[in-house]
Simulated assay, not measured.
Amino acid sequence: MSPVLPGEYVPAQHVNLKLGPGLLQQYSVNGQPVVVSTRAGDVQHSTNRSRWWIESNSRRYVPAPQELVVGVVVGRSGENWRVDIGSAHTATLDGLAFEGATKRNRPNLKVGSLLFARVSLAHKDMEPELECFDAQTRKAEGFGELKGGFLVHCSLKMSRLLLDPLHFLLPLLGSRFSLESAAGTNGRVWITAKDPRQVIAVSRCIEGVDPDGGGMDEVAVKKFLSTLDV
Results as ranks from 00 to 15, higher is better:
S87E: 08
W53H: 11
R59K: 12
V36M: 15
G71C: 05
E55A: 11
W52G: 03
Y61R: 10
R59E: 14
V43D: 05
D42N: 09
G95M: 10
V73A: 09
R106M: 11
L68M: 08
L24E: 14
R60F: 03
E79M: 13
G78D: 11
A40T: 15
Q44H: 09
D84I: 09
G71I: 11
T102E: 08
P63H: 08
H45S: 15
S50K: 14
W81F: 09
S58M: 06
G95Q: 02
G75T: 03
A64E: 06
D42T: 14
N48Y: 07
G71A: 01
E55T: 01
N108R: 12
W81N: 01
Q66F: 06
S50R: 11
R104W: 02
W81V: 05
D42W: 01
Q25P: 02
S46W: 01
N80G: 06
V69G: 07
Q26M: 13
V83I: 07
E67K: 02
N30Y: 06
F98N: 05
S87Y: 04
R60D: 14
E99M: 12
L24I: 06
V35T: 14
R104H: 13
G78V: 13
R104M: 05
G100H: 13
S87F: 06
T90I: 00
T102G: 07
W53Y: 06
V36G: 02
Q25M: 15
W53G: 08
N108Q: 12
R106P: 00
G86K: 08
E55S: 14
R76W: 02
I54A: 11
P33I: 07
V62K: 10
R106N: 10
K103P: 00
Q26S: 10
Q32W: 05
A40F: 09
Q66T: 14
R51M: 05
I54M: 09
S77F: 00
L96S: 08
D94Y: 12
R82F: 08
T90D: 13
W81G: 06
V62L: 11
V43W: 08
V74P: 01
L109W: 11
G100F: 08
V62T: 14
G95N: 05
A101I: 03
A40Y: 05
Y27G: 02
N48E: 15
T102M: 12
R39H: 01
S77G: 00
A64G: 01
R104V: 01
N105T: 07
V35C: 04
R82Y: 04
G86H: 03
G95D: 04
L24M: 13
S87M: 07
R39A: 14
V83T: 10
T47P: 00
L96I: 03
V35P: 03
I54Y: 08
T102H: 10
G31T: 05
L24G: 03
I54W: 09
S50N: 15
S77N: 09
A101Y: 07
N108K: 10
S77I: 02
T92H: 12
A101S: 14
R76D: 02
R82Q: 15
E99T: 12
P33K: 11
K103D: 03
Y27E: 13
